[in-house]
Design a protein around this nucleic acid. Structure first.
Lengths: 343, 343
DNA sequence: TGTTTCGATCAAACCGGTTTAGTAAACCAA
DNA sequence: TTGGTTTACTAAACCGGTTTGATCGAAACA
């Protein structure tokens, strides 16, 4: 394990025959350095293979050159959700170009606030992303109090001093319901995500509103936990209400529900229509292929990171609009069976 | 955005009426501080709400107090793979107790080496994990040259100065094949992962060996890319060879393949048995429930992090054994149909 | 008693950058 | 020639910790 001593700015200064300060100026493109010396310094730096020490820069300018992400989900649920990796990839896309790093923290749900606090206290990050917003999310106030720049994914329900990436699940749910209603369904059910999650409750509300808008009576709703097991259980429960279609609030539950329905003799889509949400990689490859709502977490990640860096740099940042989610129609939705009479 | 000026060690020193150095000694539990003063210092630190600045410590002891992970997969593929989140959660489990952070980097595959180099040059991390080992992986030599401590997930095929978490896919594949052979299957096919990935090629070799051991002739193998689309395509291709069972090298491809088979009229498990690998959350909730190989990436993450920290602290670390993967038998495997005669 | 030893403490250097204050030389106008 | 600016650069302070070498008083020893 060789430990090649990295050259410091001092070495560069010596090689170029100038002082440390001048080297710093030259490397940062500041005025007050003659073209001649600047080139000599750059050449010296190149020859020595010098790269700035993030540690030293971080201390001297009191910036971490990193942003943080705290994930509070249980590992199993995390693994099943395609959101995070895609979001993170998008974030990285923006960060890596700008020499910023992403610090990740995965904590038990109860320690989420402690997680943010740790990142802040240790000075490890200059800002954070807030995901999985909850109803009346306490993290907003916490981060404001800590003076920590943040960007939320979706606009919180309460007041928030932070810019948000305006992710809106409602049009996606509305599109799913309207698609089903258009096919002739009158008994549409919903398997919702946990109500304390903002996206869980918003999708649910969107579902209710969409039914109303389609002139349909309220449909049965069962709350589940976004997991396959939860989706399966919820499906068993909700099928008792005799819906001809189920709108799931994510693909994982939809795929699990689809299997349950088929096992219970409810052929999909002949006797039951099903829609998912997320449009995961798998959605197009289950049988029948799942009608789902396509979201773009990669894009959200990119935009969120851009906004956060801007905010950290002291800019004022507006909420960031993103394209509305699109319904991808596949084979899991069809008109309801004729024998189901409309009341 | 209040910016509450964090107290420094200097403030603590002033409050306790001692010098900076003494404070540092006291806080780090070094000898040479009277019990009396130590307590006074600790009290002062507590009262002021002092927490050490990672930035300053990092510079002064030239440690980043962070470890790195470079992900080189495409975002979509990342999203579909349950491995990363679980692995990362395990890593965090170990790290967070010890005040270490995880720095993530997601890069296009072509920039993977640059990714490691960036982390190293900037001094952002004290060590890294090496995932998704490839055949003759160039990263091993790169990291050795950079003098960067590392832990590999699985033992590389070539020489490596780094400890490895001894993940071994072979028993899992062997168990799947032997399970199928025990059910009476004689025509077993394999949908492999990319051959340039070590786990792709190892699982394939394990498949070949297991067939041989069961006294069966080599079975057809199609290489795919671990994605649902790839799994579906590979299944279409491999079904032409007329196998009675297919061993997939991950669940995602298996689930996609299962749908393809059913659509082509090959009922599972009546006319085709299918096994997956990973035992994802969804495996138990598709129809039929998927027989799969359970792995434990959460545990691997924990162990890998422990080993890496030990290594960074200058310890010598041996390879880390982990429990062998277990076959989880569900409904997607059954005896082959009787009409298939054995040659 | 004088000397040694030792524990407790402090002042200062250091990590590798950035930034400010200061200076010498060059330049310019009167 | 003088005096005032500019330009190009240096020296030193600073960020907030850790670590080393020196100092000081008290206890231990001869």
């Amino acid at each position: 394990m060789t430990r090649p001593d990295r050259p410091t700015i001092r070495d560069v200064a010596a090689a170029a025959g100038v002082s440390k300060g001048t080297v710093s100026f030259a490397l940062n493109g500041r005025p007050g350095v003659s073209e001649d010396t600047r080139e000599r310094i750059l050449a010296a730096a190149r020859d020595l293979g010098w790269t700035p020490s993030t540690k030293a820069r971080a201390l001297s300018v009191s910036r971490a050159f990193a942003v943080g992400l705290v994930l509070a989900r249980e590992p199993e649920l995390l693994g099943a959700d395609p959101f995070f990796p895609a979001f993170i990839a998008g974030v990285e896309r923006t960060l890596s170009d700008r020499g910023q790093a992403l610090v990740l923290q995965v904590v038990p749900e109860a320690e989420e606030e402690a997680g943010y606090r740790r990142l802040a206290d240790a000075g490890r990050v200059d800002g954070v992303f807030v995901l999985d917003l909850r109803v009346a999310d306490p993290r907003i106030a916490l981060l404001a109090e800590l003076g920590m720049p943040a960007v939320t994914i979706a606009r919180p329900d309460g007041p928030s001093p932070f810019p948000a990436v305006l992710v809106d699940d409602r049009p996606g749910i509305a599109a799913a319901v309207s698609h089903l209603a258009g096919l002739g369904h009158r008994h549409i059910a919903h398997v919702a995500g946990p109500a304390h999650f903002l996206h869980g409750s918003r999708r649910r509300r969107a579902f209710d509103d969409a039914l109303d808008e389609a002139g349909l009576p309220p449909g049965p709703v069962v709350e589940a936990d976004f997991s396959a097991a939860g989706g399966a259980a919820a499906t068993r429960e909700i099928l008792a209400a005799g819906p001809t279609a189920i709108v799931y609030s994510n693909d994982l539950m939809a795929i699990a529900g689809l299997s349950v329905a088929v096992e219970l003799g409810r052929a999909v889509p002949a006797r039951l229509s099903v829609t998912g949400f997320d449009n995961t990689d798998l959605a197009g490859y289950v049988s029948p292929a799942l009608t789902s709502v396509r979201t773009d977490p990669y894009l959200w990640g990119r935009k969120a990171a851009e906004a956060l860096l801007e905010l950290i740099d002291g800019g004022t940042v507006d909420d960031v609009p993103v394209p509305a989610a699109q319904l991808v129609i596949r084979a899991s939705t069809a008109p309801p069976p004729p024998e189901v009479r409309t009341e």
